[in-house]
């Protein structure tokens, strides 16, 4: 790995009321890398993405992107800097066409020209380009969510459970899309419960348990780690 990471979390902590959701969380991600983020339900995976993307602010700690602290920036500024994401429950502009959804992001992100048709093709929505986003299936909406993120020309992409509910062929398509993005130098953090899928595209995973980093390394070794096993079985 090159020396300077693209994104670094330093001792990030987040509480909701009395509940500690992220606890002293630190890790780094380099350009072109796909990092898996796994853990039991409620372990803080989505919250990690929310904190990086400015949906929630960390209570303590720092988030450093390209050498600058971003933990106090609002989401639209974070998007302007080149961090983008998809949502576990897809969010799109329901009363706009599929194409318009992508165009909005291309228009407002201020991150250079993007090829709308190319993005629609990448996410497999070319033939749906002119229909209303609200009438897509949930899986198609997830792809549109990703397309909206890609239209901002991101340097790092946070993908929250895009695989849930997809069949093996669709999963294969997404795996090759994500690896091709990484090959272009985009860093990806991929939250996923489907370990086979992660195994195919990552060489490193981060395992969270109750908001703490339990393990960092190749997925195969994670299953031998007693803390990880305890977190998944215990809870």
């Amino acid at each position: 790995m090159s020396s300077e990471p693209l994104l670094r979390l330093e001792n990030v902590g987040k509480r909701f009321g009395g509940l500690t959701v992220l606890d002293q969380l630190s890790f780094s991600v380099h350009g072109g890398e796909i990092v898996g983020l796994v853990g039991p339900n409620g372990s803080g995976k989505t919250t990690t993405i929310n904190v990086i993307s400015g949906v929630h602010q960390a209570d303590v700690g720092r988030v450093i992107f390209e050498g600058h602290e971003i933990q106090r920036l609002p989401s639209f500024r974070i998007a302007h800097r080149g961090i983008n994401r998809s949502f576990q429950v897809p969010k799109c502009f329901r009363e706009m066409s599929v194409r318009e959804n992508v165009e909005v992001a291309a228009t407002f992100a201020n991150r250079g020209e993007v090829e709308i048709d190319g993005i629609l093709e990448q996410v497999g929505l070319t033939s749906q380009a002119d229909i209303q986003a609200g009438s897509l299936t949930v899986n198609q909406q997830k792809m549109l969510d990703l397309g909206r993120a890609l239209a901002t020309n991101p340097r790092i992409l946070l993908v929250d459970e895009i695989g849930a509910g997809l069949n093996p062929a669709e999963l294969g398509g997404i795996a090759s899309l994500l690896t091709s993005l990484a090959a272009r130098g985009i860093a990806l953090i991929v939250v996923e419960h489907l370990l086979d899928f992660l195994n195919r595209i990552t060489n490193r995973v981060i395992v969270l348990g109750a908001g703490r980093l339990l393990f960092e390394g190749p997925l195969k070794e994670a299953s031998q780690d007693p803390e990880v096993v305890a977190a998944f079985i215990g809870g």
Binding site: S75, F76, A79, F93, E95, V104, T107, F108
Partner: peptide, 19 residues
């Protein structure tokens, strides 16, 4: 266009870059 986007989904609009 930004108004239309944020009217439909303010969070997505922010990630599309709308202030």
């Amino acid at each position: 266009l930004g108004l239309k986007a944020m009217n439909q989904d303010p969070v997505s609009a922010a990630f599309a870059g709308v202030n």
